[in-house]
Design a binder for these strands. Sequence first.
RNA 1: UGCCCGAUGGUGUAACGGUAGCACAGCAGUCUCUGAAUCUGCUUGUCAUGGUUCAAAUCCAUGUCGGGCAGCCA
Length: 603
Amino acid sequence: MPDSSAPSAAPAAPSDFIRDIVAADLAAGRHQRVHTRFPPEPNGYLHIGHAKSICLNFGIARQFGGLCNLRMDDTNPAKEDVEYVESIIADVKWLIAGWADHCLGLKPRGQTPESRPVNGTADFYLPAVVPGGANGAELEPFYASDYFEQIHAYAVRLIEKGLAYVCDLSPEDTDKFRGTPDRPGTNSPFRDRSVAENLDLFARMKAGEFPDGARSLRAKIDMAAPNIWLRDPLIYRIRHTAHHHTGDKWCIYPLYDFAHCLSDYLEGITHSVCTLEFEVHRPLYDWILESLGLPRPLPHQFEFAKLIPTYLIVSKRKLIALVNEGIVSGWDDPRMPTISGIRRRGVPAEALRNFAIGVGVTKFVSTTDIAVFEHAVREDLNQRALRRLAVLRPLKVVLTNLAPGETIEFEAGNNPTDPNAGTRKLAFTRELWIEQDDFMEVPPPKYFRLRPGGEVRLKYACIIRCDEVVKDSAGNATELRCTADLETRSGGANAAKKVKGTIHWVSAAHAVDAEVRLYDRLFTEAEPEKDGRDYRSVLNPRSLEVVTAKLEASLARPGPDERYQFERLGYFWPDPVDSTPGKPVFLRTISLKDAWAKESGKA
RNA sequence: UGCCCGAUGGUGUAACGGUAGCACAGCAGUCUCUGAAUCUGCUUGUCAUGGUUCAAAUCCAUGUCGGGCAGCCA
């Protein structure tokens, strides 16, 4: 359990226009406290774009000493599922752990809004509770569906005020009557029903007397409004569908616009932060709240541009397709841009957070180079990863001047960036594995690894010279016969001897075999759907390569949450899903930057 | 072509009427028992045109370009 009393040192989020607004509201006394919310619809898994929203909303709560409620925006039973609810809870908790745990607003399980008068007016309110609180009650997220009773009461109030009516127009006719952006709509013929008739009809809608789509409840605003969302928007529809959270209790469900602003109000939200596409809904958000004559301070909506990273697709529908078509192994496939995929890939929450905070918050629609994310991952992992030696594509080296069975132990540092990380012993024997890439019979200029007659240093060990290349019938090198110069070992007489290249190795006698999965970008193009192309046409055929690697012995039983750097290769960690005790499967979180690949690729 | 929103290097982002800065990417170099990391330097920018002002990325106007809105989705 992360220690929420000591949030990890994170770089302070730079100010942005939303934080400026929050600070100004506080300074002006418009609010006495700050309360945000993160309100995903449980109809898919959270992805990297949500990470930005989570970090923004929890970051604001954290910075201003407020709370951020986790809320399921679950008003559409047809699309939602508890599987998604559970994944969302797990992903949010993981992302904010050790950073904003103390700001996570939840509520006692089963709790719904309390009715209580404020200044003589009936009101509903559901305060947030932070995990670890005194009463020890079991906590759960907020659910918009927990407010169906109250939202329904507000709808009735709107009818009573003459501000909502039951409309019998079919969905098709409703569309026709709405007009177009440049042409005003037409009043529904049912617009002027009496309050009594509306009340009766709405009650019968609720009682299940009508089939889906037969009638709807609409706000009575202005069919000629230039803003389409003010043209008598629907606020309730009939859906004879069971809901994942409320079961069969309801057959009418509020629409987003009606439910969302009221949910914010019920929870005492002060700043309701969402993405740009809701900007045109804001007048409706305000209209509903203001029309109801609510006694407590109203929340206000603010919009920012969502994250659009290169080399990724993030639309829920397409993510579902990747899963359903078997292009990836599931929502948590390490190549997925989902938070669960990123987590399984081995990216620490801190790294994702640093990225999500670092991209900034504006209203400008922009794309973020995925290299920024990759940099955040490498920067984090460089600090935390334990260095280990592993050979992905082995080539045998025989040190002819060592006796068979002779074992020398070398000491190797665990992390050059962390003096407290300690050291370990590495067995060095006559037969070793080195990387195939680290030997070339006819190397290009500037290649400074091993070549016939050439020398190279074996990391933590000593310098070797390649005396002879053994080849198979096809002419491929199968074994290198080399001489080790033990005087060049650390502490040896010639320890200071310089050679241009240093490579990694493992003792053949001590190496353990393990499956290693090498992940790369899922798409070969920065914009997989540029100009309407099908993202399937730009899938990277090498987004996953599986090899059986030779690992240094200490890797046989990796720490379950440990990050490793396989030196000169990349950052790896044991797959939390497919690893078994004593038989780890390593995943490559990300490769090390490779200047040589760039250099040699140029030619 | 109605309404709303936006525009700062290649990509993001800061500067809140007073020296256009930072990050990523790129390039060159340094260092290196990881061709990583580190360190150094460099290239490249205020959409356009007017106006206000001693002074404009910032305020105003017009234009241009881009995004969003016509689900009983969120």
